[in-house]
C-alpha cells in the first residue's frame, strides 16, 4: 500500500542549519512539541497544525511562507 506524498513541503531542516545548527530538541522546546514530532515534520511524515506551523516559523523569525509551502498537484 503506497501512501500519497504530502503536498505540504518545508525547509525546517535547512533553517535549523542556518540557525547555528539548532538541534531538533531545541526547536521542539521552543515550539512546545516533542523532538520526534519535529523529526516527523522534517521528513514530511507529519503535517503540523496551523498553530504549530506558525510557532515553527516564529522560532526561526521567518514568515510562515518561508518555512512551509504547498506543492503543486501531482498528475
Amino acid at each position: 500500500m503506497s501512501k500519497a506524498k504530502s503536498r505540504l513541503q518545508n525547509r525546517v531542516r535547512e533553517l535549523r542549519f542556518f540557525a547555528n545548527e539548532m538541534t531538533q530538541a531545541e526547536l521542539a522546546e521552543k515550539v512546545g512539541v516533542t523532538r520526534q514530532t519535529i523529526a516527523a515534520i522534517e521528513k514530511n511524515k507529519y503535517a503540523p497544525s496551523l498553530e504549530t506551523a506558525f510557532l515553527i516559523a516564529e522560532a526561526f523569525g521567518k514568515p510562515i511562507g518561508d518555512v512551509f509551502s504547498f506543492g503543486p498537484k501531482e498528475g
Binding site: V33, T37, A40, P48, S49
Partner: peptide, 9 residues
C-alpha cells in the same frame, strides 16, 4: 512525559 498534537492525532 511530554505529549503533543501528533500524539493526539
Amino acid at each position: 512525559d511530554l505529549s503533543d498534537e501528533r500524539d493526539r492525532d
